[in-house]
């Protein structure tokens, strides 16, 4: 059995070393997910670091990351495994005449003809693995049924080969934007973590950590503005990813002081709707040209 993290404090310290600043609840939940060997379901608005947490866990524990990006229409053949029927066809054609059918039949359903997809690869790996199932809310309900077997028993049944069980349980992270309610069955098997916008202090630390060479004073000003923007009624409130982008923009523009004119000029980096920009300009009393 792998120990992923020794304690919540250890999780926090090692994730920090991997470049991911957690709050207490996040560190504790990450630790529990490892200790209880349960999948971790992370929900939250876009750009708060859901996917990044999975990557950071992989970096912090030296595990390899296997990623399954979900989308509408994802099916078994893309998520789990598929038989390489072209190769099978070749095998049959190559052996025509000189082999008995029963031999060929046994032969073409072996490992050699199996194409493993992320879920099966993650289970069959012997080394520590972080399995990231990204944007799980984008899939159809049928795929959730498929996930159930994998998430609860960490095994996959292939009719021709039998059941493949995990020799070493992967650290599973599911992320969701909550564009659809996941089924109770999936949720029941997971630990749940909601990642929201961080408090000002942590956000300052994150921005400063992600963007080297930025002035502390600019970081403080930037986070102040972002916090105020989140209080407005906007269609899409800026998240951490936008703050970091903004900081990078300011570094690139060599801005040493975030004054109103600069905010007005670079607002497009943080707000992606025209009406949001107008609203922000009005509320922050910016002089827009």
């Amino acid at each position: 059995m792998t120990t992923w993290f020794e304690s919540p404090g250890d999780a926090s310290a090692r994730l920090r070393a991997a470049g991911y600043l957690t709050d207490d609840a996040t560190a504790l939940t990450a630790y529990l997910a490892g200790a209880l060997e349960k999948p971790l379901l992370i929900e939250g608005p876009a750009g708060v670091g859901k996917t990044e947490l999975a990557k950071a866990v992989a970096r912090a524990t030296g595990a390899e990351l296997v990623r399954l990006q979900c989308y509408e229409g994802l099916d078994e053949a893309r998520a789990l495994y598929e038989w390489n029927y072209k190769k099978q066809l070749l095998r049959i054609q190559a052996s025509q005449g000189d082999a008995a059918w029963s031999e060929v039949h046994d032969d073409i359903f072996t490992e050699e003809f199996l194409l493993t997809r992320p879920l099966l690869s993650a289970i069959r790996r012997d080394e520590p693995t972080v399995l990231l199932i990204d944007e799980v809310d984008k899939t159809d309900v049928e795929v959730e049924g498929l996930l159930l077997e994998v998430l609860s028993d960490f095994q996959v049944t292939i009719p021709e080969l039998g059941t493949v069980s995990a020799t070493r349980r992967p650290f599973v992270v599911l992320t969701s934007n909550a564009s659809r309610e996941l089924s109770e069955a999936v949720k029941r098997r997971c630990l749940f973590l909601h990642l929201g916008y961080p408090d000002a202090e942590r956000e300052r630390a994150i921005v400063a950590g992600q963007v080297p060479g930025i002035d502390d004073r600019v970081v403080a000003q930037l986070v102040d503005v972002v916090v105020r923007l989140r209080e407005l009624e906007l269609k899409k409130a800026p998240s951490i990813a936008e703050s970091v982008d903004w900081a990078r923009t300011l570094v690139a523009l060599q801005v040493g002081d975030l004054d109103e004119a600069t905010v007005a000029r670079t607002l497009g980096v943080v707000l992606k709707h025209a009406s949001d920009q107008q609203r922000a300009a009005r509320e922050l009393k910016l002089a827009t040209g």
Partner: peptide, 23 residues
């Protein structure tokens, strides 16, 4: 069983992670 109980917020977070599945 796997966390220490000296901090109330730790207990709260442990309960939240396992029992609350909807924000």
């Amino acid at each position: 069983e796997r966390v220490r109980w000296h901090d109330r917020e730790t207990v709260r977070a442990a309960y939240a992670a396992t029992l609350v599945k909807r924000q």
